[in-house]
């Protein structure tokens, strides 16, 4: 037992939990196919079995031999430094993980809460849009307050939040904020260069993809963001 660390147990529980969850759900498609004896579920279940075997094997290896990191050539060749960076950072504690996972919940709250509210209060479309706007504003404030002292967690959440806002508020409004936010979270504080380089990045992207290649990026569907997005597209194309 002395070789075992909490992380090893978490890994084993994660893999076995995933296997169990997907196995239980595989009964939904456990149907026979006339021309194929094994049906639709044999292949996925075989993969699940192999994952379970590998997870147990890995756990047994950790238990018997600890991390067992051989420093052979193959290992050196496949090291991308991500593990070492994780070891050196001060992020390897349960508090950081809990904090980061709570941050990561913010985009998912946005993806679900307005709809739940709209159903509960039987709101029509304008009401839903107001609910979305209010939720977005509130969650953005929570996000800004919650990332103090955890820039890595903030950096992990920001793109997902951007992805969640994209459909409703449009690329043209959210992208500049996203660019500035990324720079800030990565430690940049010179506002002048942030704005100038941010404008350059957005300018190049819009010129290349919207004006030249006619890629239709999301314009948003909540007023006045929708009107803003369409105005930008009309201006560029």
């Amino acid at each position: 037992m002395r070789n075992l660390r909490a992380g090893h147990i978490v890994e084993a529980v994660f893999w076995l939990g995933l296997v169990l969850f997907l196995y239980l759900n595989s009964f939904d498609f456990d149907q026979e196919i006339e021309i194929y004896k094994y049906g639709a579920s044999a292949w996925p279940r075989a993969i699940l079995l192999l994952i379970a075997v590998a997870a147990v094997g890995q756990f047994a290896g950790h238990w018997l031999r600890g991390e067992n990191r051989s420093l052979g050539m193959l290992d050196k060749a496949s090291d991308d430094g991500a593990e070492a960076a994780a070891r050196l950072s001060d992020h390897n504690n349960p508090k950081w993980y809990a904090w980061t996972f709570l941050l990561l919940a913010i985009p998912f709250i946005y993806m679900n809460l307005p709809e739940i509210l709209a159903t509960a209060l039987s709101l029509e479309k304008p009401g839903l849009h107001t609910a979305k706007l209010l939720c977005a504003a509130a969650l953005l404030i929570v996000f800004i307050l919650a990332i103090r002292g955890n820039p890595v967690g903030g950096m992990l959440t920001l793109p997902l939040l951007f992805g969640a806002f994209l459909q409703d508020f449009g690329f043209y409004f959210t992208a500049p904020l996203f660019v500035l936010g990324t720079m800030y979270l990565m430690g940049e504080r010179r506002w002048k260069s942030m704005i100038m380089i941010g404008a350059l990045i957005i300018g190049i992207l819009l010129a290349l993809f919207v004006s030249l290649l006619y890629v239709g990026l999301p314009t948003g569907n909540i007023s006045p963001f929708y009107e803003f997005g369409t105005a930008v597209v009309n201006l560029l194309q």
Binding site: V179, I201, L205
Partner: peptide
């Protein structure tokens, strides 16, 4: 790198969205 990172992330966003025009593809990518 703090100036390169937003460019890479935005290029990836445009790329993920351009395939099928689905905003959810962007969220899946992140």
């Amino acid at each position: 790198f703090q100036f390169l990172a937003p460019l890479i992330l935005l290029l990836a966003t445009v790329g993920a969205y351009a395939v099928r025009g689905l905003a959810i593809d962007v969220a899946v990518m992140f």
